[in-house]
């Protein structure tokens, strides 16, 4: 429990930092010797443009330099997306405060029509997602399709205004390469958490 309290405190301290996520990541680029050109298998070869929950335009590559725990879903999803986000929060909770701060939790909406940045912001607040470590992204159809292709996330409109989509949580290293993926909401996140911790240890 004290772990949780510490985490909240740390999050509060980071609010200012998180509100300018793009700038913050750019700074990390400068300081963490992220490669100028993405590696061959890096997701950051994608040139798609995204907007975060604060309305700032963010190229995908701006996520580089830190490990990222990423998933795709949409905010009006009542079925399994809450479980995806809950799994990501579980991972966050089971890390040390220090470690969690060195990770980005990224949620990419596949519902480009409905999930405006403002809507994403409301969703983040409602779920208590720490803006210091969480970023929620809105992109156009092309950006969504391309990222989904790269992450292996199948999706399709369900005919009722929502989507069927694969529940996939990806661990991406600081270069943008996929390390491990957790498929299915009932799968344990232990493996992904262990891989994340080992990534962070290597960086130490």
């Amino acid at each position: 429990m004290s772990h949780r309290l510490l985490f909240v405190a740390a999050a509060a301290a980071l609010v200012a930092f998180g509100s300018g996520a793009a700038c913050a990541h750019d700074m990390q680029h400068m300081t963490m010797d992220a490669p100028a050109e993405p590696t061959s298998a890096s997701l950051y070869n994608l040139e798609s443009k995204w907007t975060n929950q604060d309305g700032a335009s963010v190229p995908l590559g701006a996520l580089g330099g830190k490990p990222v725990v990423a998933a795709m879903g949409y905010t009006s999803c009542k079925d399994m997306c809450p479980a995806i986000v809950a799994n990501m929060m579980w991972i966050e909770r089971h890390m040390s405060e220090d470690a969690a701060r060195r990770v980005t939790f990224a949620f990419f909406s596949i519902d480009s029509a409905v999930d405006t940045p403002a809507k994403l912001k409301v969703y983040a607040d409602e779920h208590g997602l720490d803006p210091g470590s969480w970023t929620l992204f809105h992109g156009d159809d092309d950006a969504v399709r391309e990222l989904a292709a790269a992450l292996g996330v199948g999706y399709r409109p369900d005919g009722l205004g929502g989507f069927d989509h694969a529940a996939v949580i990806s661990l991406i290293d600081d270069k943008g390469e996929i390390v491990v993926q957790q498929r299915g909401t009932q799968a344990s996140s232990d493996e992904l958490l262990a891989a994340l911790n080992s990534l962070l240890e290597k960086r130490n």
């Binding site: 079925d79 929502g162 989507f163 069927d164 694969a166 299915g184 909401t185 799968a187």
Partner: peptide
Amino acid sequence: SANFCGGA
């Protein structure tokens, strides 16, 4: 299918 969100 727990791999797929949404019922279809």
